[in-house]
Design a binder for these strands. Sequence first.
DNA 1: TGTACATCAGTGAACGCGCGTTCACTGATGTAC
DNA 2: TGTACATCAGTGAACGCGCGTTCACTGATGTAC
Lengths: 230, 230
Amino acid sequence: VQHYGVMAVSPGRGSYHRRHHRTSYHHGDLANALADAATEMARTGGPNAIVLRAAARAAGVSAAAAYRHFADHDELLQEVRRRALDSLAAAMRRSLDEEEPLADPAEESLRRLRALGRAYIRFALEDPGLFRTAFCRPDNPVPDAAKRMATQGPYALLSGVLDELVEHGVLDADRRAGAEIPAWASVHGLATLLIDGPLAQITPEEQARAVERSSDFMLNGIKGHRDPVA
Amino acid sequence: VQHYGVMAVSPGRGSYHRRHHRTSYHHGDLANALADAATEMARTGGPNAIVLRAAARAAGVSAAAAYRHFADHDELLQEVRRRALDSLAAAMRRSLDEEEPLADPAEESLRRLRALGRAYIRFALEDPGLFRTAFCRPDNPVPDAAKRMATQGPYALLSGVLDELVEHGVLDADRRAGAEIPAWASVHGLATLLIDGPLAQITPEEQARAVERSSDFMLNGIKGHRDPVA
DNA sequence: TGTACATCAGTGAACGCGCGTTCACTGATGTAC
DNA sequence: TGTACATCAGTGAACGCGCGTTCACTGATGTAC
């Protein structure tokens, strides 16, 4: 077997260039290498920063080679999107076990809800580019993505904890249906306002306070009201 | 005075082409014509659809002419952004007087809060491109925009109604500070999930239900809790 | 174990596109006298 | 009221760029015999 020398390719100029030690003519795992590079671009500059040619450059491969693994630019973007959503879900899942569980089951389920929200916000603040990619408008909306999210993504995690809240009497069963949406909306809105919107300008301390205030308000909304005004 | 014939310019090919009856060599109001065209593009395709050359084409003018009125592409985008935010604020302001005021002042202020939220969502659903432009990430963040929003934009309207809620005993005074953020976040999050996110796939009926559910939850959060679990 | 061959994953050059921006220019406008 | 001239808002051609995508191709791989 004749091997090409390592790095025997034209010097990459993209800032995302990661040398993938090519030891043979065939790359071996080009699909993943391209997705890795594209993900790195998204991390830095959001969905618009994903450039197929640059990804190929970063992988040390001609642009045309990318078309062996992705039908077109959009398919590459969708792959990055999928990864971003997976990362977000993973971060949320991890957050559930980061703190000590509380003895009282009701309080414990509230703690878990808070943890999910905080992980969501934290992800958005730490990786705004990836976060924006996860929720970027797809060129041709693929309902599959929504399905996946519903069964194993952030939505499913939220659903599970809301079920726990019902189980332990925090959330009335008759207010359970569709409760994912308000909860998700409030945390998602806060995240986007913090990274893209006017709240991006405020200090980190103010941001932290805003996060706490928002979860308090939303938890109040979840818990329901005993003495409604209207 | 020698006049050029109306439409004595090369036929525009852009889909946004609006013939501006040019009766003289000088346009007369090119800055606005460009902003109009750019706004129309944003309406159709969001901030990324704003193309300086196309705007010039639509205004029946050479691309270079645009540079008499805007320093660069970003300045044109910012102008569209400004307009979009103004439109949103105007829609919200109008919404306050669309329904009959309620006799009870507490209920009336809650009605007004709901009206603001609904107008916000309605704007996003009816004009998603403009909405996304209003909140698009600016190339070079100009703190001025945040200032303007705070004094006369959506934020100010929300602030005013929250003050009313305190005045009429719906919102405790000691929970007032910073309450804009959770309220805004929840409605903003719902809007973005509805137009870009997974909620874009559900039926209009489900969407309407989601909007109602969300405002109920948020209003509960605003009103506070008498019998907290934690 | 060695070889012919189908298959597959790369290459590199090219195409067409349209963008943002700059330049030297020219036609129109309004003002000072 | 008429005219010279500074100023201003346009023109049109060009530059450089880098993109997504296609094409005919070639080198490497693995399998059947």
